[in-house]
Structures are given as structure tokens and as C-alpha cells.
Design a protein around this nucleic acid. Structure first.
Length: 226
DNA sequence: CCCTGATTCGC
DNA sequence: GCGAATCAGG
């Protein structure tokens, strides 16, 4: 995977939104967390509260650098380290998750930025978009969007797509596309994409033919009622 | 253990 | 430029 303009855009966007490198990495697909961090730094995107860099020891000695970089002369005036900007944390639960549609989209001068694609995962069998798949060319005529282009990854405390990892239950809750659609989020049953409970739903023993089966519990909380 | 970001350095 | 390996804190 290479860093196309688009992917770089996504990286920037997500990085700025406070998503973790891991999240960004597996959202983009095809890159490692390290790659994301590396790229972010190369891009000059910088510094979010890093665990290992909480404070700069103003002590005279700064030995713990592996490479004893012999650079002695650095007439640089002390670069003002803007101190710890409070970065948004993993799943902030703002009271208003609903992305305000806002009429601000009216500006024609605004070139449509390819926001992260909306992708779905579910037991129903549809797979997430992967690194390899073709990128739907969005450019030609992105007319007015009635819905905000921003997927708003933070769906208030819920486990969103972006929160999924290998060890988080991916059982969907609610209906995809709806504002409160999210994922189970429990710790997975090791080796499975779902938690123990949802494994029970996802993997049902095949009963002998002709056996009357109770209505199988469907994903998505069952057929949509309208 | 898991996670996080930072840094280094061979490619 | 890239990213795996490594480090180091939570």
C-alpha cells in the first residue's frame, strides 16, 4: 500500500480527530500502526499526548537517548513547547452525537474531500472494505449532500466501526445506517470475531433436516419494524 | 498482558 | 520516503 493523496487525507483527518494510530491503521487498511505514526510524523502532524513523553526532563543530562547524537551546536532558541493540548480521547460521549447537518455545505468553493468511506461489517455476510478493493471514484459529481459527509465516528460512547479491533466483538447493534448503529464491543471469544454470547448466536449447530427450529435470532435485532 | 505514541535506522 | 523494531509510559 502506498500513500496516495487520498489516504494521506484520511490519515490527516483521523489523526486530527484524535483517533489512535491503530484505529487509523486498520481503518485505512494495508498499513501498520507504525506506518501510520511514521507517516504522521513525516507529514508534520504532530504530537498528541504520548505516554512516553509526558514531560521533558529539564535536567541537564539527557542520556536516555539511544543514539548519542553528537550534535552539539543547536543555536535554536528554545522552541516553545506548547504544553499538553488536551486531546480528544477514545470515545468521548458528547451529548449531541448527531452531526448537525448545517447549511454550511452551501459553500461552492469547498472542494469535496473524500472522507473515510462508510463500510460495513456484519454477520449478515457483508464484509468491510479492504485495502485491495477499488476505490469508488467519487470525484465526478458529488452533488449536494443532504447528510453530512462526516461519518462522525464518535457515536456517543457506543462502539463504532472505528473502535473495532481484533479482540472486540463485532456484533452489530441496531441497524446499519441509523444514527445509533454501533457494535457490541464486548471482549471477543478468543479466536472469534464475537463475544461469547454472540458467538452463540452466530454459530448455531445445524439441526437435522425437517426439524422444527425456533425462529433464529437475527442480527440487527431482527427485521426492521416500520 | 493490553494499549499508546516516539524514535531509530536499514531499506 | 517508508515502516519494522524498538523503546517507554499508562
Amino acid at each position: 500500500m502506498s500513500w496516495t493523496d487520498e489516504r494521506i487525507d484520511q490519515l490527516k483527518a483521523m489523526w486530527e480527530r484524535g483517533l489512535t494510530a491503530s484505529q487509523i491503521a486498520d481503518e485505512l487498511g494495508g498499513v501498520s500502526r507504525n506506518a501510520v505514526i511514521g507517516k504522521a510524523h513525516r507529514l508534520g502532524l504532530q504530537s498528541r499526548p504520548s505516554p512516553v513523553k509526558a514531560n521533558e526532563a529539564p535536567k541537564k543530562a539527557a542520556p536516555p537517548v539511544r543514539k548519542p547524537a553528537p550534535e552539539a551546536d543547536a543555536p535554536k532558541p528554545a522552541a516553545p513547547v506548547h504544553h499538553a493540548a488536551p486531546a480528544p480521547v477514545r470515545a468521548p460521549a458528547p451529548a449531541a452525537p448527531a452531526p448537525a447537518p448545517a447549511a454550511s455545505a452551501a459553500s461552492d468553493a469547498e472542494p469535496p474531500k473524500p472522507q473515510p468511506r462508510i463500510i460495513s461489517v456484519g454477520p449478515g455476510g457483508f464484509l468491510r472494505q479492504g485495502p485491495g478493493d477499488q476505490q469508488a471514484p467519487i470525484p465526478p459529481a458529488p452533488p449536494r449532500r443532504l447528510v453530512p459527509a462526516k461519518p462522525s465516528p464518535e457515536i456517543a460512547g457506543k462502539t463504532s466501526l472505528l473502535d473495532l479491533t481484533e479482540r472486540i466483538c463485532k456484533w452489530p447493534m441496531g441497524h446499519p445506517g441509523e444514527p445509533d448503529f454501533h457494535f457490541c464491543g464486548e471482549a471477543v471469544n478468543p479466536g472469534f470475531p464475537y463475544c461469547v454470547e454472540h458467538c452463540g448466536r452466530a454459530y448455531q449447530a445445524q439441526l437435522p433436516r425437517g426439524t422444527r427450529r425456533p425462529p433464529p435470532p437475527l442480527p440487527f435485532g431482527g427485521p426492521r419494524v416500520r
